[in-house]
Design a protein around this nucleic acid. Structure first.
Length: 439
RNA sequence: GUGGGUAUAGCGUAGUUGGUUAACGCGUCAGAUUGUGGCUCUGAAGACCAUCGGUUCGAAUCCGAUUACCCACCCCA
């Protein structure tokens, strides 16, 4: 029974009261991306499992325990995408986008799936907005991508999000750092938590952001990545900081940012909010210069980010960010009798083909009930159609806000409404402007 | 995967130590004299009190299990 009436764990329904917000959010994000030359790319919801194992990395939690993997009817191993980058790159490689003008700049909006225990801001099906820039290895590219995130957050009126950046080096300098970390943490083997003991062997970087108090304390004095960067990575990082400064983007350097996906190199960054609970990372990203090659392409640098749509919405709501006003009915046509109802259908059709939002009774309510309904849905104007109106071919358009009536021939309803709506929208604009001036 | 909390109509809640018709607000629907909404008033519909099992003469109230949700760890968006 519950199987029929309950959505699967960790999933959620987006009802008509929030979908307009999502549409606004999504179109704003894509439009902002366009300003930077990123164009939307759509790729499948599922891919071959191998793709994620190779790109995300088989030591990561995502691959080891969070993927929705199954066999299709021919026994192929298929996985619902747990993140967006792998599919985006696969698609770019498959279609030879890298043979065209570089850099390749794509944006995507996609559902992602991770089998995790849910909590605030964490779902099993969630949505990511992301961007990938391929073929650009300079710090200018990093700055561009980070600046894009800032502009998105700005455009959406999300305040109060902090940017943290770090560099985790490249395959040339990272081994030195790993070695230094191993040496350092090995002194404290008896004080590290069990998972960190494992990490010591596999990925000592991760000990740095362990929340265990004991590990955290030890990590405080651990070697810092930034001291171990090779010249190239060091220059890259200062190049990025220079550009962020020039663009007036404030950030803090946080050497403990590590990221849980194996493909990152050099720059990594996170945009964090403290208003939505423990899962405060609204956007995370970084550079992945080795990834294209790992996937079988020519060595090509790349950088990108992913933003959690649900988390973004949560932050916006928490900060009281503005959303566009709800679209309301332009004209509600109340009817009395069969003939009027037929005429109303015709009128409504005419109005809609002119781009108006029109409604009329479809459930057989009394006139009074129809008026109440019109009020409830926030109709701007109403019009009553009964025997009198049909006989005289005239009706009165009522302004629901002021109560004023406009006399109109039934043949002129579209024109009259056009005038009226135009006029009232001018008034609204004027009002909102005077309000702004007052402030 | 680990730990804590919660579970009563569409939504938000009440229901004191088990006692019989499970209450309230919002919302929905219908009315308040003849063809016009908002305010007010009246009325109605809507809940096997998450599920299953147990204790008891009697369970929304106590016990157990299950499921779901919330929160934190882990990890990440």
């Amino acid at each position: 029974m519950a199987l029929l009436t309950q959505a699967p764990k960790g999933t959620q329904d987006f009802l008509p009261d929030v979908t307009p917000k999502l549409q606004y959010l999504e179109s704003t994000l894509l439009q902002t991306a366009n300003l930077f030359g990123f164009v939307e790319q759509r790729t499948p919801t599922f891919e071959h499992t191998e793709l994620f194992v190779r790109s995300v990395g088989d030591t990561t939690d995502v691959v080891q325990k969070e993927m929705y993997t199954f066999e299709d009817k021919k026994g192929r191993s298929i996985t619902l995408k747990p993140e967006g980058t792998a599919g985006a790159l696969r698609s770019a490689l498959e279609h030879g986008l890298l043979n065209g003008a570089l850099p390749v700049k794509v944006a995507y909006l996609t559902p992602c799936f991770r089998y995790e225990k849910q909590q605030a801001g964490r779902y099993r099906e969630f949505h990511q907005f992301g961007v990938e820039m391929l073929g650009a290895g300079s710090p200018a590219a990093d700055a561009e991508v980070i600046s894009l995130v800032c502009q998105c957050l700005d455009a959406l009126g999300v305040g109060d999000i902090s940017l943290e950046i770090n560099s985790i080096g490249c395959p040339k300098c990272r081994p030195r750092f790993h070695e230094a970390l191993r040496q350092y943490f090995s002194q404290y083997k008896d004080k590290l938590c069990p998972t960190c003991l494992e990490r010591l062997e596999k990925n000592p970087l991760r000990i740095l952001d362990c929340k265990d108090p004991s590990c955290h304390e030890i990590a405080k004095n651990a070697p810092v990545v930034l001291d171990y960067l090779c010249d190239e990575c060091g220059d890259h990082f200062t190049g990025l900081k220079k550009r962020l400064d020039a663009m007036g983007i404030t950030y803090t350097v946080n050497p403990t940012i590590v990221r849980g996906l194996d493909y990152y190199t050099k720059t990594v960054f996170e945009f964090i909010s403290n208003k939505i609970g423990a899962q405060g990372t609204v956007c995370g990203g970084g550079r992945y210069d080795g990834l294209v090659e790992v996937m079988g392409g020519q060595p090509t640098p790349g950088i990108g980010f992913a933003m959690g749509i649900e988390r973004l919405l949560m932050v916006m709501e928490a900060n009281g960010a503005p959303f566009p006003p709800q679209v309301t009915c332009d004209l509600y046509i109340a009817t009395m009798g069969e003939e009027a109802s037929v005429k109303a259908s015709q009128l409504a059709a005419d109005l809609r083909s002119e781009g108006f939002y029109a409604e009329t009774d479809t459930v057989g309510r009394s006139l009074k009930a129809q008026m109440k309904y019109a009020d409830k849905i926030g109709a701007k104007y109403t019009l009553v159609l009964g025997e009198n109106e049909l006989r005289e071919n005239r009706a009165q358009i009522k302004n629901m806000k002021t109560g004023a009536l406009i006399d109109a021939s039934l043949d002129q309803v579209v024109d009259k409404l056009y005038e009226a709506v135009l006029e009232s929208s001018y008034i609204e604009i004027a009002e909102s402007q005077t309000l702004e001036f007052k402030e």
